[in-house]
């Protein structure tokens, strides 16, 4: 999946450094109240699925990353931020 690269003004739980990056969903934690609604006085409903996504560190930081090529970062990303990886 690819993380949407949107810059949004409201509260959200998607770190800037994975926006626009592609990774693999390793587990689905279940559904949680949506923090993007809850942080602004909303109910958080409907709940959204929270996915643990694995990114290669070298895909996030490029050649700046000093470590093994297979080192990874796992981040929990709400489903509304995930899109299928574009083909091609």
């Amino acid at each position: 999946m690819t993380v949407r690269a949107d810059e949004v003004a409201h509260h959200h739980r998607t770190p800037w450094f994975v926006k626009g990056k592609s990774g693999v969903v390793r587990r689905v934690h279940g559904a949680f109240p949506n923090p993007e609604s809850r942080a602004h006085g909303g109910s958080g409903m409907p709940k959204r699925r929270l996915c643990q996504v694995e990114f290669r560190q070298s895909d996030i930081w490029g050649p700046k990353y000093r470590g093994r090529a297979d080192d990874v970062l796992l981040a929990d990303i709400f489903e509304q931020w995930l899109e299928p990886v574009p083909r091609g």
Binding site: H29, F32, D71, L74, F78
Partner: peptide
């Protein structure tokens, strides 16, 4: 050693 950094960004 394979390093996995876990960023607890949300509800876990």
């Amino acid at each position: 050693m394979h390093l996995r950094v876990v960023d607890s960004t949300a509800d876990v």
